[in-house]
Computed example of a mutant assay.
Amino acid sequence: MDNSTKFQQQASVKWDFENPASFRPYPFEIIDFPAWKEFMALNWKYPFYASTIYILVIFSLQRYMKNRQPFSLRTLLACWNGVLGVFSILGFCRIFPEFWKILQSDGGFHRSICAREGLNMPMAYWSLLFGLSKYIELGDSLFIVLRKQPLILLQWYHHCTAMILAWVIIPYGEPLTRWLGVMNYGVHGIMYPYFALKSMKVYIPRNFSMIITSLQLTQMIVAVGLNIYSLYIIGTGGECAREPGSLVWVGVIYGSYMYLFADFMYKSYFCKKTKKQ
């Protein structure tokens, strides 16, 4: 038995479907989610390969562009951000109702994190697209490099690790992913339309960009808090549908996000020297 098969058996966890009439899927949302989870678990190396290629490409391209004029790409950038914005809004609208419903139930907060219940086909479909979309979002960096804008650590590190994290933890079938999906779709549903409008030179007050950064930082803080809550429940002998590998991945990656976004926010909006520059 090779290491990939061992990883698959450990990571692909069953979560039975519940498809009430209120969460009836559209025809295109009907997928073989267990098969997709097994595929992702078996091919867990894919996002690592993609990250390696991504880093080589963007930094090679950045070097290539060093002594060349930047491209404008405003129309293409507006379309790119607009499409990702619409996609994020649709994803949020399709998974938020189930998320809200379980929160409103008895013990909803705990159940939303620790109980494998409430999985329906729309939630499964948009969870899968959530993971696959992280590959598409790597294209954000190409616009930054081709337009010769600053490519900061937070930008490329976040893209790489978000793709890896989504691809690795989705097969675990954890209820926590509903939180991560709702928050990410929600923030991106605001962020990408904002970028689209900015690329079209639509005036938007600077304070709005601070609101988006605040939402991003809040997303990271909440994710870290949920991970700590899971550890507390497990540590006190309670039951929580979390896998050891996921606890480590989420804790390390979202912990690093929390630090990087806090640092970015401080330097962008509160550091007097940076604001002056």
Rank of each mutant, 00 (worst) to 15 (best):
T75R: 13
L76T: 09
L77N: 11
L77R: 10
A78L: 02
A78D: 03
C79R: 11
C79F: 15
C79K: 09
W80P: 02
N81A: 03
V83A: 11
V86G: 02
V86F: 07
S88D: 05
S88T: 10
I89S: 00
I89R: 00
I89M: 05
G91F: 08
G91C: 10
G91R: 10
G91A: 07
F92E: 09
F92C: 06
F92V: 08
C93L: 14
I95K: 02
P97A: 12
F99L: 08
F99N: 09
W100I: 01
W100N: 15
I102D: 12
I102R: 14
L103W: 12
Q104C: 09
H110W: 12
H110G: 00
S112Q: 03
I113W: 12
I113F: 11
C114T: 12
C114Y: 11
G118C: 12
L119F: 15
L119W: 14
P122V: 11
P122F: 06
A124L: 04
Y125I: 05
Y125A: 08
W126V: 03
W126P: 00
S127D: 12
F130H: 14
F130V: 01
F130T: 00
F130E: 04
F130P: 04
G131I: 05
G131L: 07
L132R: 11
S133V: 00
K134T: 01
I136S: 11
I136D: 05
I136N: 06
D140F: 02
S141K: 00
L142F: 13
F143D: 09
I144Y: 06
V145M: 01
R147T: 15
R147D: 08
R147G: 07
K148C: 02
K148E: 00
P150K: 13
I152G: 06
Q155D: 12
Q155T: 13
Q155A: 10
W156T: 02
Y157C: 06
H158V: 14
H158S: 05
H158R: 08
C160Y: 06
T161Y: 08
T161I: 15
M163F: 07
I164Y: 04
L165W: 08
L165A: 04
W167N: 10
V168H: 14
I169M: 06
I169L: 04
G173F: 05
E174G: 10
E174M: 15
E174F: 01
E174I: 08
P175R: 08
P175Y: 06
P175V: 10
L176Y: 14
R178M: 10
L180K: 06
G181W: 06
G181L: 05
G181P: 02
V182H: 07
V182K: 06
V182M: 09
N184W: 03
Y185N: 13
Y185T: 13
G186V: 05
V187Q: 07
V187M: 05
H188Q: 09
H188T: 04
I190G: 01
I190M: 10
M191E: 12
M191C: 10
Y194K: 15
Y194S: 13
A196G: 12
L197M: 15
L197Y: 08
K198C: 07
K198E: 03
S199D: 04
S199I: 03
M200T: 07
K201F: 03
I204H: 11
P205C: 11
N207R: 12
N207A: 10
S209C: 03
S209L: 05
M210Q: 12
M210N: 11
T213L: 04
T213G: 00
T213Y: 01
S214K: 01
L215E: 02
L217Q: 14
T218D: 00
